[in-house]
Design a protein around this nucleic acid. Structure first.
Length: 112
DNA sequence: AACGTGACAAGGC
DNA sequence: AGCCTTGCCACGT
């Protein structure tokens, strides 16, 4: 088991997180904390945000399926990025209640 | 090598 | 409900 405090040189922390994000099935969303835990970094949701921010475009990683614990998109409400993410999620069939997404319903690993 | 920053989260007011 | 504080830790200066 890889410790969260262990330093990784060969495989970057980013790659581990990206791989985890790629495991989120279409039509589902995961929170930053959830991705962090699954990637082997419990209690480090910020690492996920950091990794996604460093994500190069055209990576094929479904970054839009990652939202915050409140079920909201972690971008300023009017930002282009926020609109894009919301569009991508709607395209996958997810329904927003205002700004919020129902994690009980669309959350990854919620009702398997 | 120290310091500030960040696409977060949880807890206190 | 919102706002502030604290924990967390990789990265670029």
């Amino acid at each position: 088991m890889i410790s969260s405090t262990e330093t990784r040189k060969t495989l970057s922390t980013y790659e581990l997180i990206w791989k985890t994000v790629c495991q989120i099935p279409k039509g589902k969303v995961a929170t930053y904390g959830q991705v962090a835990s699954e990637a082997g970094f419990p209690r480090q949701p910020r690492m996920v945000g950091y990794a996604l921010h460093a994500l190069p475009p055209h990576s094929g990683v479904p970054w839009h399926r990652v939202i915050n614990a409140q079920g909201r998109i972690s971008f300023p409400k009017d930002s282009a990025a926020c609109k894009k993410q919301r569009r991508l999620l709607k395209a996958e069939g997810l329904v927003f209640h205002g700004e919020v997404l129902d994690l009980e319903r669309f959350g990854w690993l919620n009702d398997l």
